[in-house]
Each structure stands twice: as structure tokens, then as C-alpha cells.
């Protein structure tokens, strides 16, 4: 990690020194343990603050839409998938974007850490590769990295950036096709069970829209929830049905575009299992249209394309 951090720093510095870009979007050390924070370096000096660690969990594609000037980004696999999708949607001008690709085998989920420690506060972290030492007031616990990764990282098959101008680190071996086990389990439930689950889950929602704003693909100038003419949906968080509708529509809007980066779920302060919905759609798009978002510059948007060989099992003949 430290080696990568140093290379990121160097790459960014060089780009800024050579005036190839005006800005490098990357991560700096955050203010909490296990936390990287988005950082915007505009000078070689500022580039010194760039880093790379297990807490660089944000999807930086979010900061690249409709930017002026030449910009470089330090991008993990999921960031790049979103960049690809956004490029195709005219939100990013690929010609003005320099991608510093970083293969990523996963970021640490602080919720999992919290669960492991039963509420004890982590004050310091030592990254030992496959294990992580978590230290706090009067304790030090060693945990396996694999047990602490975000679920989205565990499911991710595109840790290697699919597009980049420069690669830092080495490409990782390909992972096996994912099986969507938890989605299949969810699908297997009865309608009533699913409804009950959703109602319980979305009763937590406080409609802060962190999920939406953290999603690189949610960039409507006016989100449908904010629209007053027509008023698609009630604005009050008191009505769970409206909360569910908000997520349902958000997820449908991202169908065929969602790179399953998990940013929405990570952003949720209330710990709602948002990826259950996004991944359901990811799976459906995969099964119905054999499409995955942002894995190739050439693929057309799944929901805006018709191909004669779409499997379309949902089209029922008379």
C-alpha cells in the first residue's frame, strides 16, 4: 500500500509539474483511522499529500463530471467503471481526463470493524497486508483483511481498471463470475417476505440523500424526488412506502449504469442494505441483456439499446 501511495504521489507530481493536467483528484489521509478522504491537488506540493490506503473507499468519478480543464484521477476499478459509464453519457470528456489506474483488491468496511470491536473505538490501524491490527484505548486486535472488506469489494470482479492512461501497481488475476447468491436468496422469498424486509429496512431511511449524492451516476440537475411538478413522490420520511419508492426509482434509474461500486451503501449513515436493490438490477441487466455497466468503452447503454439477440425472456408471446 505504501509503495503504491508513493507511486501515486510521484505520478501526480509529474503530471502537475509537466503541466499535463491542472488538477489531480485522489485521496489524502483522512481525519479518522482507516479513512482516506477525497483530495484535490493543484500543485506538485499539494500532490505530496496524496496517498493510497485501505480507506480510499469513495468513488472519485463523482468529482469528475462536467469539469473544465485537464484533470487526472487516481482511480480504482470501480471508479473507472463509473468513469466509462459517465463518458458514454457525455458527463466526462475522456480527452480531458487522465486516468491513473490503481488495481484494487478491496477497501475496509468500518462498519464491519465496528461490529468486530463491539462498539470500541479504533484510534490507530496498522496495515499488515493480509491482516490488520486495530488499536484503541487499552486494546489491540488483529483481524483478517478478508473479513473486513466491503461486501461490494468482495463481489467485485473489476478491481483492475478497465481503462487507464497509466497503471500503478500490478494487475491482479481475474476473479470468477459472481453468483449473486444473496440476490437469489432474496428473490426466492415470497412477496410478503420481501415487502416486510423492505419495510423494515427503509423505515431507517432519513431521506438525507447521501446515497444519491454519493452515487457517481446520480447526477440529474433535478432529482425526481425534488421535483414538484409533477410531484412524483412524497417528501416526508415518515412514509416508508415513499422511502422504498425513492430507492426503487433511483435503482431503476441506474439500471444498466450501476457499476456496483457500493458508494450508496457506504454513504448511508443509517446502514441501510442498499446494495440489495442495486445488485438485483445489476443481476437483472446481466441476465436479461447480457450487459454490465462500464466494462467497455464500446458497449452501448443497456437500457437505451435494442439488439436483435437480446435474450428478452420477459417478452411473452401471445
Amino acid at each position: 500500500m505504501q509503495a503504491i501511495a508513493a507511486q501515486v504521489k510521484e505520478a501526480a507530481k509529474k503530471l502537475l509539474e509537466d503541466k499535463k493536467v491542472d488538477l489531480v483528484v485522489g485521496f489524502a489521509e483522512g481525519s479518522l483511522p482507516l479513512r482516506g478522504t477525497p483530495f484535490f491537488a493543484r500543485t506538485p506540493e499539494e500532490a505530496n499529500q496524496l496517498t493510497w490506503n485501505r480507506g480510499c473507499e469513495n468513488n472519485l468519478a463523482n468529482f469528475l463530471r462536467k469539469r473544465e480543464g485537464k484533470v487526472a484521477v487516481v482511480a480504482k476499478g470501480c471508479d473507472v467503471r463509473s468513469i466509462v459509464a459517465l463518458t458514454k453519457e457525455n458527463q466526462i470528456d475522456r480527452d480531458n481526463l487522465y486516468i491513473i489506474g490503481v488495481p484494487c483488491d478491496g477497501m475496509v468496511d468500518r462498519k464491519k470493524v465496528g461490529k468486530l470491536l463491539g462498539g470500541k473505538e479504533v484510534l490507530e490501524v496498522v496495515d499488515q497486508g493480509d491482516t490488520i491490527v486495530l488499536k484503541g484505548n487499552g486494546f489491540a486486535e488483529t483481524a483478517k483483511l478478508a473479513d473486513l472488506l466491503h461486501n461490494s469489494c468482495i463481489d467485485c470482479r473489476y478491481g483492475n481498471p478497465v481503462v487507464y492512461d497509466e497503471l500503478i501497481g500490478t494487475l491482479m488475476p481475474e476473479k470468477a463470475e459472481e453468483d449473486f447468491a444473496e440476490i437469489k436468496a432474496f428473490e426466492a422469498k415470497t412477496t410478503a417476505e420481501r415487502r416486510a424486509f423492505m419495510t423494515e429496512e427503509f423505515s431507517k431511511c432519513i431521506r438525507c440523500y447521501a446515497c444519491r449524492n454519493a452515487c457517481p451516476m446520480c447526477y440529474c440537475t433535478e432529482c425526481f424526488v425534488d421535483c414538484s411538478q409533477p410531484e412524483w413522490i412524497g417528501k416526508s420520511a415518515a412514509n416508508v412506502q415513499d422511502n422504498i419508492l425513492f430507492q426503487a426509482v433511483r435503482v431503476f434509474h441506474s439500471a444498466g449504469r450501476c457499476a456496483d461500486c457500493g458508494a450508496c451503501e457506504r454513504a448511508c449513515p443509517m446502514g441501510i442494505n442498499l446494495r440489495l436493490l442495486t445488485r438485483k438490477l445489476v443481476k437483472d441487466v446481466k441476465v436479461l441483456f447480457n450487459a454490465e455497466a462500464g466494462v467497455s468503452m464500446d458497449d452501448k447503454a443497456a437500457m437505451a439499446t435494442f439488439a436483435a439477440d437480446d435474450p428478452e425472456p420477459f417478452l411473452v408471446k401471445e
Binding site: E89, N90, Q91, Y219, C220, A301, M303
Partner: peptide, 9 residues
């Protein structure tokens, strides 16, 4: 135009 994000869909 105020609402359009220009995504091209």
C-alpha cells in the same frame, strides 16, 4: 434545458 443533463439516452 434546466433539467437536462445531456446524457444522450
Amino acid at each position: 434545458e434546466r433539467k437536462c443533463a445531456g446524457c444522450g439516452d
